[in-house]
Design a protein around this nucleic acid. Structure first.
Length: 281
DNA sequence: AGTGTCGCCTGAATGC
DNA sequence: TGCATTCAGGCGACAC
């Protein structure tokens, strides 16, 4: 389930093969993923040099020299495989499109659940497109911090955990890192979002930044090896303090799971939340 | 505008 | 063993 760190790692893995390189062909194996893929996208990208590859929230954006570009979202199960020039490979189950670079590199999108999507972008206005209009601040950007987060949460009555999943509050945070950041900040996921102010907003903003940065660092260390495997980019081993650790001991305090403490699971908005009742208040 | 619910989709895990 | 059910979840459509 790629969130900001996983998407960042995927983008970093793709960049050396795409940035400054020319796309020979975008080959679609099916006309749609979650949404239809624009019919003119292959023609718009063919023969174009990729000027830049960037990430915004959980999206990857590629911009070409002719002013056109693409937007890629990995959904829940989207993966990218990259084959350097000259390396043979076979099409695999759930491969949905292939980008052939002029130098012979192949970049393949695989997505069992097809919750991901590929869309067209305009280089000079992609930020105003429907995917990005209304998207909240980049948590790893310079402007992000306690005051920005507090403003985004002001007046919201929904639980802070649910609010963090709202991409208009902060971009790129998903279920895993929302849980981890709240744990790190010592804030209960059940608290009303609008109540998180001042010192707590600053602590939460700092926790979001640190948990995302550490995850990127952990993934970055695995990047150097990906060319030697057939594993998709972006799914790396990372240690979580609370996520998917129901019933296990809390790593932040000595609450005893044998006496009803430890990590508990709740459901908010239909999604699992993991937290420590002792440490997160 | 904020909030809550549903559906998309398949594989893994679980239940009988 | 095998078949059926449940669960996972980002996002957009939709209702209120």
């Amino acid at each position: 389930m790629p969130e900001l760190p996983e998407v960042e790692i995927v983008k970093r893995g793709m960049a050396p093969f795409m940035e400054g390189q020319v796309i020979s062909e975008l080959r679609l194996y099916r006309p749609d993923l979650r949404f239809p893929i624009p019919k003119d996208l292959p023609a718009a990208l063919a023969g174009q040099r990729v000027q830049s590859l960037l990430r915004r929230g959980k999206y990857i954006v590629g911009l070409a020299g002719n002013g056109r570009g693409f937007v890629l979202h990995l959904g829940m199960s989207g993966r990218i495989r990259i084959y350097p020039p000259g390396r043979a490979h076979a099409r695999e189950k759930h491969d949905h499109f292939l980008i052939v670079m002029q130098d012979g590199a192949h970049i393949i999108y695989n997505d069992a659940r097809r919750f991901g999507f590929l869309d067209a972008a305009e280089a000079d206005s992609w930020g105003e497109s429907r995917h990005f209009k209304g998207m909240g601040p980049e948590p790893l950007g310079n402007e992000f911090g306690g005051p920005v987060l507090e403003r985004a949460l002001a007046g919201r009555k929904s639980a802070i955990k649910t609010a963090l999943l709202d991409q208009s509050v902060v971009a790129g945070v998903g279920n895993i890192y929302a849980c981890e950041a709240l744990f790190r900040a010592g804030i209960s996921p059940l608290r009303p979002a609008g109540d998180i102010r001042g010192r707590e907003a600053s602590a939460l903003a700092a926790a979001i930044v640190s948990v995302l940065r550490e995850a990127i660092d952990a993934g970055g260390s695995s990047l150097k090896d990906y060319r030697h495997t057939d594993d998709g980019l972006g799914y790396f081993q990372h240690h979580f303090a609370v996520y998917d650790r129901e019933g296990l001991a809390c790593p932040g305090c000595n609450c005893d799971s044998a006496r009803g403490g430890g990590i508990v699971r709740a459901v908010q908005g239909g999604r699992s939340t993991f937290y420590c009742k002792s440490r997160q208040v």
